[in-house]
């Protein structure tokens, strides 16, 4: 085996895990065709990677998700009409192209296959058949009207989204212009000591809220923080009643860490620091380390 092939053998794990880019993927798949050892290895590794999704912590789906998901799919089906056999599936927003067999039922070729129970020669039943065809056509026309109306609603919603996006862009541009400028007239609005959330925690910290022309900023410093392991991180939360908003994450160096966050004052009542399993959570999952009441 030459060196190149040997190097490709080293990619089996990344392949099974799904970590190869397009170029590597093509090369490895070509290699796989001729390398029985890699095929065997990938097969073995797949037993492991196939069940990796199950390691995800079970999260209850949002209320009403089932009816929304199935409703959208099946509404698409009904909007296309029930005339043909098989039922046509209209193109939905973001959806795939309808399959040719389905197009033929509704639009391109308006004559459907004869109903299965018809017997005898077509001429003998031409009247009956004609009636059937017109019923089908009427149903198809009606469903197309419904479908068109649904599309118009979608277009309307998209236009609105576009208008909102442009508003956001101008807002962001204004912020961007400010971002480059040095701080002026920075005023401390509030400074609170962060207290340990449990007796065995020796950490302490300071949360300061400062205001300048760019907005309201939260500065958090903490020391004697517990040691992090794995992909753990500290996360700062701004809390108002039951609602917790992440203000960002930070890592500590020898127990000392700090972070900075610009926010819209929303009457937050508490600032808290938790120790999280990773830095990607949007709601607290870990242990509460420090907290203090604020008037942010």
């Amino acid at each position: 085996m030459d060196k190149m092939e040997e190097e490709l053998c080293q990619l089996a794990e990344l392949y099974a895990l799904g970590g190869l880019n397009e170029t590597d993927l093509q090369q490895f798949e070509a290699h796989l065709e001729g390398c029985a050892a890699c095929r065997e290895q990938v097969k073995e590794l797949r037993k492991l990677t196939d069940i990796l999704p199950l390691a995800a912590v079970q999260v209850p789906p949002p209320a009403g998700m089932k009816s929304r998901v199935l409703g959208k799919i099946l509404a698409g089906r009904e909007a296309g009409g029930e005339s043909g056999n098989p039922a046509p599936t209209p193109k939905t927003i973001n959806g795939p192209e309808p399959e040719p067999e389905f197009i033929s039922a509704g639009t391109r070729n308006p004559v459907p296959a004869p109903p299965p129970k018809l017997s005898g020669t077509p001429a003998k039943h031409s009247n009956k058949r004609l009636r059937y065809v017109s019923v089908v056509l009427a149903a198809a026309a009606a469903s197309l009207t419904i479908y068109a109306a649904a599309l118009q609603r979608d277009v309307g919603a998209l236009r609105q989204e576009l208008a909102e996006s442009s508003e956001q862009v101008s807002g962001l541009q204004a912020q961007l212009a400010l971002a480059g400028a040095p701080s002026q007239e920075l005023k401390v609005n509030e400074a609170v000591q962060l207290g340990p959330a449990a007796e065995d925690i020796i950490a302490r910290g300071l949360a300061t809220i400062v205001i300048d022309a760019k907005g309201t900023h939260l500065l958090v410093q903490a020391e004697k923080l517990p040691k992090l392991s794995g992909s753990e991180a500290f996360q700062v939360w701004l809390i108002k009643g039951d609602v917790k908003k992440s203000a960002g994450t930070f890592l500590a160096s020898e127990g000392t860490g700090a972070m900075y966050y610009t926010f819209d004052p929303q009457g937050y009542d508490t600032v808290a620091i938790t120790q999280e399993p990773d830095s990607r959570g949007e709601q607290p999952r870990g242990r509460l380390i420090l907290a203090a009441p604020i008037e942010g």
Binding site: V59, E282, P284, R285, R287
Partner: peptide
């Protein structure tokens, strides 16, 4: 999507994962 930050459910601090 990570930057959007729209918490749908207000979980409590230290919430245990759903036992399923």
């Amino acid at each position: 999507v990570r930057d959007r930050g729209i918490p749908v459910e207000a979980e409590t601090l230290n919430a245990l994962p759903d036992a399923g």
